[in-house]
Design a protein around this nucleic acid. Sequence first.
DNA 1: ATGAAAGCGCTAACAC
DNA 2: GTGTTAGCGCTTTCAT
Lengths: 338, 338
Amino acid sequence: MNDEKEVTIYDIARELKLSASTVSRALKGNPIINYKTRQKVAECSEKLGYRTNAFASNLRRKKTNTIGVIVPRLDSHFLSSCLAGMEEVASTNGYNLIIAQSHESSKKEAENAVTMFNNRVDGLIVSLTAENNQPDYFRRFTEKHVPIVYFDRIPAKEDVTCVCANNFEAAYKATHHLIAKGCRRLLHITIPSASNVYADRCQGFEAAAKDAGCIASTLFLPALNMETGRDAANQIGKMSPRPEGIFVANDIAAAGCMLQLEELGIAVPNDILIIGFNNDPICMLVNPPLSSVSYCGRDAGMMAADRLFEMIDNYDFAFQKIIIDTSVIERESSLIKQ
Amino acid sequence: MNDEKEVTIYDIARELKLSASTVSRALKGNPIINYKTRQKVAECSEKLGYRTNAFASNLRRKKTNTIGVIVPRLDSHFLSSCLAGMEEVASTNGYNLIIAQSHESSKKEAENAVTMFNNRVDGLIVSLTAENNQPDYFRRFTEKHVPIVYFDRIPAKEDVTCVCANNFEAAYKATHHLIAKGCRRLLHITIPSASNVYADRCQGFEAAAKDAGCIASTLFLPALNMETGRDAANQIGKMSPRPEGIFVANDIAAAGCMLQLEELGIAVPNDILIIGFNNDPICMLVNPPLSSVSYCGRDAGMMAADRLFEMIDNYDFAFQKIIIDTSVIERESSLIKQ
DNA sequence: ATGAAAGCGCTAACAC
DNA sequence: GTGTTAGCGCTTTCAT
C-alpha cells in the first residue's frame, strides 16, 4: 500500500551503528542505556521520521493496549457521557478504545464480542442489550483471563464485576418522593425487560408503593422514547381513576408523556406529578422542568474504566460490584401537591 | 500473561497434516483450496478454539482494518449520532473504530493524531476543535497516503475531503426565515471561532440581513451551552431596542436563551422569534418548540465513513467536498409574527 | 552498556 | 490444490 518504506528500528540502528535491541531499549527510555545514546537515538528517530509499529510490538508482547467497549447505542446522552468518561481514563493510561454498538440486538452483541476477542482487546467494558441479560458469548473472555467490567445493564449472574446504580433503591426513592408529595395512585411506565435496569426499577417502585399502602400499577411500553411516552399519556388520559403520580423509567419517555398530558389538558404537576430517570439535560429544558433520578454517566464510565485497569494491571480478577450514587432531583414536575 | 497457549494455524496444520499456508487460505475461504479441506480446517479450528491473531496478520499485510475517529467531544447528541452512523458503516465493512476526543484542545488533538498514526489506522475521520482550523499535525497521514475525511468542523484549506453542511447557506436560510416572519432587528448568538461552522453561519446571517436591509448584530459568547444561553438572554433583556429575531448557532444555547427570556417576561415567539441550529431532539421538548436547522448526524457520519472506505479501497485520493442537506424546521418559537 | 539471535503468528511469492 | 520459505518489526533472553 504505502509507497515509501517505513522507517524501523533497524534503520536507526544502522544509521547510528548500534544494534536493534539497543535502539529498542533506548526508545522506551530504558535507563540501562547510556544517556547520550538515548539522546542520539531520540534525535535520529525524529530525523528519520520513525514511528513505532504497534502490531509488531503487540505481536511480541501479546498485549494490545486497547480496550473494547460494547454498548447498546451511541446516541444517547447517558451512554455518550459514559464513553466520554471511559475515553478519558483510557487515554490517560495510554490505552485506546474500540467501540461497537449492539443496537439492542443480542446477535449483534455476540458478533461484536467475537470481533473484540479476535482483536485481542486487553479488557472489555459492556452494557448489555435490554433483550438478553445472560449472554454466554462473553465466556471466552473470562476463559482467557481477559477482564470484563459490565456497567449499567449488567448480567443476571453474580460472578461478574460491574458498575451500576442500585436501581431498586433509586426507584424506591423516586416513588417515595411521589408518595411524600401526596400521591396515592401510582403508575410506573417502563418496558418489559429482564435487564436489571428495568426490572429493578420496577420492583423498587412496587416495593415503595406497597410499603406505603398505595395503589400501584405498571404500564409496559414497547420502547421508551418521545413517541411511546406520548402514547402512554393518551392511555393515561383514558384511565379512571387517573394516577396521581407517575414514575417513568427514562427521561425521554417521561418528557414525551408530560408534553402529551399537557396537550390533553392534564396539567403537570397540578393534576399529575411525574418523575423520570437519568437526569438527562432535557429535564431542565422541558416545561415544567422534570424531576428525575440523577446518575452520572461520566463517573460511571470512569469508574468502570478505572476498575478495568486495576484488573488488567494487577492481574486481579476478584468480582466486585461498584454502586454508583443516585439521588432524586426535585423539579417542578413533582413539586406542587403535598 | 495468558496461561494457556494460544492456538495458531500451525496447531491446526499439525493436527490435519497440512501446511500453515493451506490452513491460512482455508480459513479465509479461499476457493482455490479443496472444499473438503476447507471444511476440515473450519471444524478443526472450531474444535481447538482457534482465534485469528489480528496483529500477526496486520504486521504481515500492513493493514489494520481500523479507522480512527477524532471528535471534540462524545457527549453531544449531534456527534454521537455521527459516530453511530460511522460505526454502522465501519462494522458492515469489517472495520473497527477507535475513537478519541480532543476536548476542543488543539494540543490533545495533536496527541490523538500521533496515537492514531502509531496505531496505523487505515483511515481517519476528524471533526476539528473550534480552536484551530488549520492544524498541521495531520500532514503525516497524507504524506503516508492514509486517507482523511473531515466532517462538520473542517480545515480552512481547500485540498481536503470533507463532509459538512453549507453553513453559510443554512444560516442564510435560517435568518431569512426570521426576516420572512417580519423581523427587522436581528441578533446572531455564537462563539468567536475561525471554524467554518461558526464563521460561515455568522457570515450567512450577516449576508441575509444585509440583503434584506435589516439591522444585524452579533453577540459572541465564551461557549454555547445552557448557561451561556441564559447569560445571553440577560444581555438581550437590557438591549434597547430589543432584537426581534434571534438566530443562535446551536440548539442548547438557543434553548437556554429562550427559557431565560421567558423568565424575564419576554415571550417567545410573541416578543421575540428564535431559531437554533442542529435540530437536536431537545427542540421538540422545550416550550415553545424550538425552530432549528436540521442536519442529520447519522447521515453525515455514514457519508464520511462511506467516502473514507472509497478512498481506502480504490486508493483514490481525489479531494471532494460533500455537502449535507440542511433545512429550516419551523416550530412555534418562530411562527407567530408575519 | 551493548549486541546476537530467536521468535511472536501470519501471509504471499514462488514452487511443484 | 498444496507446500516451502522468507519476512513483516519488534522484544527479550542470554552473552559479552
